[in-house]
């Protein structure tokens, strides 16, 4: 087994645990590179099938290419797609800095969708290497009443035994990609031929490394126009992946607060 095989086997194990133990389970699909890998791994884990709903919590502010991608692949991959909206920005806490306020919409949309569908488990494609609080995440991360993450008192998780039962009124986030790195995502997408939105590939000296809402995500300077070039770029770059995400930089604790409230 090589490195990618090992990453894949671990993710499949996590997905199968979630599927075996959680009755109402959905995969979150942000249309980005990570959640496309998650969907791919779901199909690997379940031998070509996607036996659970796929939910896109839609801010309504995504790039057009992302919506096109959603339409095309939800059909091609035969997904049970659920699209849930986010509330208008005016309803969000006005004391938040602009990008954080915008991100809060997504949390509110997610929480509303949770309440509507009664999901016990949400599969999300976050990775430890993206940012400091994610580096502390569990594969199975319990969320309390109000969907809050108690990041100061997480349950222990060891020997591949995950917390798969929860008090009523709470849910769990399942993170099958936690141990992957950004470059692994690209190498795996290349190896498996996973489709990707073309915004990731450089045009006129710029490309997106991470895709969020159109108004708060910015491209980075890059000439990497192919998968090979992206991988080569990532082998040497020192620029953080989320440097183009405005909300990560507004205040030292901005992102931690967002995540404690339920942001991915």
């Amino acid at each position: 087994m090589d490195h990618l095989d090992a990453l894949e086997a671990e993710s499949i194990h996590v997905l199968r645990e979630a599927f075996a133990k959680l009755d109402k389970l959905a995969v979150l699909w942000s249309l980005g590179k990570d959640s496309n890998v998650v969907l791919w791994l779901v199909r690997k884990a379940f031998f070509g099938h996607v036996p659970l709903p796929v939910m896109h919590v839609d801010t309504g502010k995504k790039f057009k290419q992302m919506y096109d991608f959603r339409e095309r692949y939800s059909r091609e991959w035969n997904l049970k797609l659920i699209v849930e909206p986010c509330p208008p920005i005016e309803q969000m806490d006005p004391t938040l800095p602009p990008a954080a306020r915008s991100a809060a919409r997504k949390t509110a949309g997610l929480n509303a969708a949770l309440a509507k569908h009664g999901f016990q488990g949400l599969i999300a494609g976050i990775r430890r290497d993206e940012e400091g609080t994610r580096a502390k995440e569990r594969y199975f991360s319990p969320r309390g009443i109000d969907n809050r993450w108690n990041l100061k008192d997480q349950p222990p998780e060891f020997w591949n035994q995950y917390m798969t039962s929860f008090p009523p009124g709470t849910h769990v986030r399942v993170h099958p990609l936690l141990h992957w790195g950004e470059i692994d995502i690209w190498r795996y997408s290349q190896r498996e031929g996973i489709p990707l939105i073309d915004l990731y590939f450089a045009k006129d000296g710029k490309r997106y490394r991470s895709l969020g809402d159109e108004d708060i995500t910015f491209p980075v300077a890059s000439n990497a126009a192919t998968l090979d070039e992206i991988i080569t770029e990532l082998e040497t770059t020192k620029v953080a992946e989320r440097s183009g995400r405005a909300m990560d930089h507004e205040a030292e604790d901005a992102f931690e607060r967002l995540r404690a409230e339920g942001y991915l």
């Binding site: 100061k152 997480q154 931690e256």
Partner: peptide, 28 residues
């Protein structure tokens, strides 16, 4: 670098385990 939580930084203590990727010439 590793103590990313506000509570960890304010109190100068690690609360939870964090993982980070690192590479040398020899391996990852």
């Amino acid at each position: 670098l590793m103590d990313a939580l506000q509570a960890e930084r304010d109190q100068g203590i690690t609360i939870d385990t964090a993982q980070i990727q690192f590479k040398t010439e020899k391996r990852d």
